[in-house]
């Protein structure tokens, strides 16, 4: 039987779609884990990035920490956290280590891109805001963040794609997600299952990339969009 036949046969079993170990629950688990870690990373990283970008204080330290964080191998982090949390009920063994590792992976790009985005804001725009009597928080909310938004969203995109791709490794500790299909496929020598799992992870990573790219286009302040494009759209 060729691989294509095997995959077709595997896909023709409804249990492989909606059963407890099927693709759909695995996909949902994968999205849940990735979404949770991204939310956690945003809550931690965005304020840090905004703070160092707005004040310029602690930038060198934060960027260096982010570089080190990016170099940490995810499997190593999972391995280091796992023995410490294994006895915490109920998620200590299968979930917490992956959440820590994935959140740590997601934080650096958000911090560095938020910082870089705020630093790129034209000082004259900030001057103008100050001249209009804006306070620091207003300046951040009304001037700096809108102008830095493309860069901030680029950071979120890099993080999200990495998290979705790496969440596959959570299956090593018995957590769910699409990595389960791959790891079970390897263990059961079931080429069809591991191939479908790999395909779904790759497609999900690409879809995340495209989704955030679309979000970046929609969310950009109208003033930042290329003027000719807007005019031609109005003509059409």
């Amino acid at each position: 039987m060729t691989l294509i036949d095997e995959v077709a046969a595997w896909l023709s079993d409804p249990a492989h779609w909606t059963g407890p170990d099927g693709m759909l629950p695995r996909l949902l688990e994968h999205l849940e884990l990735s979404g949770f870690c991204m939310a956690l990373a945003i809550v931690i990283a965005l304020p840090i990035g905004l703070w160092i970008g707005h004040t310029g204080r602690g930038a060198a330290l934060a960027i260096r920490a982010a570089n080190i964080g990016q170099a940490l191998p995810t499997l190593g982090v999972i391995g280091i956290v796992w023995p410490l949390t294994a006895n915490i009920e109920p998620y200590g063994f299968d979930l917490i280590p992956s959440v820590v590792a994935l959140t740590a992976l997601a934080i650096p790009p958000i911090v560095t891109n938020t910082f870089a985005g705020l630093r790129q804001v034209d000082p004259e725009a900030i001057e103008a805001g100050r001249g209009m009597g804006m306070r620091e928080l207003q300046l951040l909310r009304l001037v700096e963040v809108p102008l830095a938004l493309p860069s901030i969203l680029a950071g979120l995109r890099i993080s999200a794609v990495q998290v979705v791709a790496t969440a596959t490794l959570a299956a090593v500790l018995g957590a769910g997600g699409l990595g389960r299909l791959i790891i079970d496929g390897i263990a059961q020598q079931d080429d069809a299952q591991l191939f479908v799992g790999a395909l779904l992870v790759a497609v999900l990573a690409i879809a995340t990339e495209l989704g955030f790219a679309a979000l970046q286009r929609v969310a950009a302040s109208p003033g930042l969009r290329a003027r000719p494009a807007r005019e031609s759209a109005a003509d059409a």
Partner: peptide
Amino acid sequence: YAIPSLALFAFLIPFTGI
């Protein structure tokens, strides 16, 4: 480069084995 590592291994296994 964008394909997750575990997925890339999985794509290759049917052809080059474990």
